[in-house]
Design a protein around this nucleic acid. Structure first.
Lengths: 361, 361
DNA sequence: TTGTAGGCGTTATCAC
DNA sequence: GTGATAACGCCTACAA
């Protein structure tokens, strides 16, 4: 009698077909190829489906049959919320989103929190047709998991991966120019406020070894750029104090800034690996009663919107964030369409001098 | 002979099972339940899989079998990139992301561009276990498509939907308070700069009818709040000039501001339905050689970060964006776990007076 | 225009 | 600890 009152389990294509008295294929066509059947029949099918409470073709089953998800996966190396709160990341995603939009694809954000980067299971399970890895640390399990999937793959700001497309920034060059700017102003006691070197959430002073063996290409290269410039100016490349922040967030920068500016002798300038860190360092200076740039110069990295409107406006290294995302999006879409990975795209950086740097006091 | 040189098609669980000489179930267990088989056998299976180039269990097939996607879909009413560039939306998403993170779920962003809101097909095909609708216009196809799926459903800033959970803001109350603030300062010629009333990308002056029949609950309620306060103060509620912007972006606000401030007689104050619009209006005032708030007062809505640091800092209606997202995330996670929708969550707004408002000149 | 048959790659449930 | 077998729900030639 339960059969009379309608099925207890949710209806499927087959339920509808049976009720109408046609085959599954015809019901499928009613949804996906209206031109393959007569209008009246289609009407009837849809009506019965509606009345049966059939929710329409199951997207997962459809994907299984078509081998298509209509989605691009974006794997973060940081918590999910940073996609919306970290200015540099959000801006790059903005660029990527603007190219993915209008192509009938969704954007799947795969969270990256955790001590060893994103959980490899999360990467293995993401339902997408192409995967984009964003600035993951070298050798984390998630990278292996991504390669393993044999899906079209694109990495952003990471070392080359066999058969993966790549978009990246000239981090070392940009960092070197930032350091040269300070040297040119006469600074000699220069400290470094770094984004994470490894995916282990460490926070505190970092020695030279830690920086050199860093597993995040971005922080490794930026540090190398700073030190190269300092070395070229005759300074001891092991001399600068380096604070490793646990993220690129402003509060983290403030803590690091307080430590660096509390050193004796106090640095006259701080090279920061992100604008948010730099803005935090400016806060720290203020906390200590120091003025920027009169008492201490601060240089950022990224050239986010906040850097330009900061107080003082930040001298920083510009990287084309929107273009980075846009190019990544175009390449991802290309891979989706069967295009080969192509040569890596390397985007330039340049220094923007604003008001947070001046000669040392 | 092609069989000798290895299969041309990509290997599956079955390929591996056959090669090892075990059943599919055992291979599946090797991946998903290591404790269900002996370690040596598992090793052997994994080794053969590796050698065969088996990418691991297919996530889509797994989802089909388990009826789980491990993802929450977030359906936007605006282009994908606004998720990262619109401050109010990004902040709400930040809150949602922070609660979803750590729960082994991905976040699927479903783009919402298009004249009639998000494409219903995109909503129908999103692979997720729960869907969140964000501020979609009443009656757009995407809403029907979402309801149709019979998945746990949550709407944010939209009218009630049968059996859907709901989180929303007291838009009308907030708007009324904003208007009352201006009235209290002595303003009588007050204009309105509105976010879209309908999903049709219209831009230009809007008459009373358009506002009253708006299909976006948010803009409808905010307008109603403004007009209620003006009416209560004895002003003609049909009098205020209203400009409908095609989005809540700053540039759109600037265009609308220029039109409103070019009217004769010029309004002495502008009520803006978003902070970005308000910031655009401030720009417009500047374009026309007017000073804010000396010549014209501007009130925003949302209380985004940019409002606080603007020049001048914006008087605006605060809405708890992060909490809105967080609550939505908690509810979505709850629905996922089988919890009932529960009563709608209505979050309060309040006025923040800063420096963009003053008595009329 | 409609139906048939085979396939998509897993997981789950039981036996053994 | 391991293996059959049956779902899971749909798509798509191809035949009628």
């Amino acid at each position: 009698m339960s059969a009379v009152h309608g099925p207890r389990r949710r209806p499927t294509l087959d339920t509808v077909a049976r009720a109408v008295g046609v085959s599954r294929a015809t019901v499928s066509n009613a949804y996906n190829r209206p031109d393959q059947l007569s209008a009246p029949l289609r009407e009837r099918i849809l009506a019965v489906a509606e009345q049966l409470g059939y929710p329409g073709p199951d997207p997962v089953a459809r994907s299984l049959a078509t081998r298509r998800c209509a989605a691009v996966a974006f794997v973060l190396g940081t918590p999910l919320s940073t996609a919306f709160s970290d200015p540099a990341l959000a801006t790059a995603l903005d660029g990527l989103a603007s190219t993915v939009d209008g192509h009938e694809h969704s954007l799947v954000l795969v969270p990256g929190a955790g001590d060893g980067g994103p959980r490899p299971e999360a990467v293995a399970r993401a339902q997408a047709d192409v995967v984009v890895l964003y600035s993951l640390a070298d050798g984390v399990p998630a990278v292996r998991a991504a390669v393993h999937r044999r899906l079209p793959l694109l990495v952003i700001d990471q070392p080359a991966l066999p058969s993966a497309a790549r978009v990246e920034i000239d981090d070392e060059g940009g960092a070197a120019v930032a350091a040269e700017h300070l040297l040119g102003l006469g600074h000699r006691r220069i400290a470094v406020l770094a984004v994470p070197f490894c995916p282990d959430h460490a926070e505190g002073p970092a020695d030279a070894g830690r920086g050199a063996t860093a597993r995040h290409r971005v922080s490794r290269d930026r540090l190398a750029g700073y030190l190269r410039a300092l070395g070229a100016a005759g300074l001891d490349p092991t001399a600068p104090a380096v604070w490793e922040a646990p993220s690129s967030a402003r509060e983290a920068g403030r803590r690091g800034g307080r430590w660096l500016l509390g050193l004796d002798p106090r640095p006259t300038a701080v090279l920061c690996m992100s604008d948010e860190l730099a803005l935090g360092a400016v806060q720290a200076a203020r906390d200590l009663g120091l003025s920027v740039p009169a008492d201490v110069s601060v240089v950022g990295f990224d050239d986010t919107h906040a850097a330009a409107v900061g107080d003082p406006p930040l001298t920083t290294v510009h990287q084309p964030l929107v273009e980075k995302g846009r190019r990544a999006g175009e390449i991802a879409l290309g891979l989706l369409a069967g295009a080969p990975p192509g040569p890596p795209v390397r985007l330039p950086t340049h220094l923007i001098v604003r008001a947070s740097t001046a000669p040392p006091p």
